[in-house]
Design a protein around this nucleic acid. Structure first.
Lengths: 170, 170
DNA sequence: AGGTGATGTGAATCCCGGTTCACTTCTTGG
DNA sequence: CCAAGAAGTGAACCGGGATTCACATCACCT
């Protein structure tokens, strides 16, 4: 809190005129920033295109934004935080999942995707995206990425699309 | 530490005869327990069967063990922990990923799976499994599961298999 | 101008639980 | 049976950092 106050150019006590506790301050910040990310992804999920195309766009948006702001993405996805912030993170992930669930639902209705639980598939996609990104984002993991960014993105997109699409050989 | 000591029937100081700090004690416990889980999954990954069948077995093993010991699974996968334990968790996830990467690699060589980065796909599978399970495992989330256990398991297995398998319509 | 409430200040407080340590008790090899 | 070291004890210590609060300043209204 000392550092936050100094950074903001105010005294420590001043923070407590606006936020009841460190946890709530951090949760509020998380909420705002996460909201912007959600908005970007929600925008990518819209449009008149097929579910597959929209899913591709969502995944690309998610990945590109994460790679463009790795520290932020790491904070939003994986950094250890207060329980109150962790609760906010859960909401954040659920919101992503809700967007994806709608998308998957559309795909099923268009018969582009086979029957499946939209909620479960959406959750799986969130986990898939988050886990594949946490590696490269992790601040100390400075080892050079195994794949060039473009290939990396396309691989993950392919995984997402396959996961919810029909297989050739059941 | 007080509680751990009381639980173990020893004095607090005694713990420090065996472990240099709380973090290292917890990390050691995590390591041991995680090791058992990894062994179980590694066993499921072996055998003479096709990569797809083995992947199915791995996923089923992972899911069933998690659902059988939800609290433990939650602790291993998602519960907030000391940084040192978090590092152990990273190793744990990487170990799972390594097992799966071998499996995916086999599948590609058998031409059962299309070309893809085994490491990336394996990481994706770990994320997919972890995220779909964290919901039901989360201790406070006592809402009745949307799907019966069997269907839940089969859905997740299907997602895993599809994610690494060929699609009918590219 | 004067009063009143909101806002700012930052050193001091307070709390919490991990860790220590002087002492006791057990174990083991000679 | 006796050192001498290992293991056990638990009350007290201690550090760190979030939070408080008595006081100063500001903004705004009459």
């Amino acid at each position: 809190m000392q550092i936050v106050a100094a950074d903001a150019g105010v005294a420590t006590g001043t923070i407590y005129r606006h936020f009841p506790s460190k946890a709530e301050l951090f949760a509020t910040v998380f909420q705002r920033v996460a909201g912007q990310e959600v908005d970007a992804v929600a925008a990518a999920a819209g449009g008149p295109d097929s579910a597959a195309i929209r899913l591709q766009r969502v995944a690309e948006t998610f990945i590109q934004r994460a790679l463009a702001a790795p520290r932020l993405a790491y904070a939003l996805l994986a950094e250890p935080v207060d329980p109150l912030v962790e609760a906010e993170r859960l909401v954040f992930r659920r919101t992503y999942a809700a967007i994806l669930a709608d998308l998957v639902d559309d795909g099923i209705r268009q018969a582009a995707f086979p029957p499946q639980s939209p909620d479960l598939s959406a959750t799986a996609l969130v986990g898939l995206l988050a886990e594949t990104l946490v590696g490269p984002l992790s601040p100390q993991a400075a080892d050079p990425p195994a794949l060039p960014v473009n290939e990396f993105t396309q691989e993950i997109v392919a995984l997402c699309l396959r996961a919810v699409s029909a297989r050739s050989h059941p």
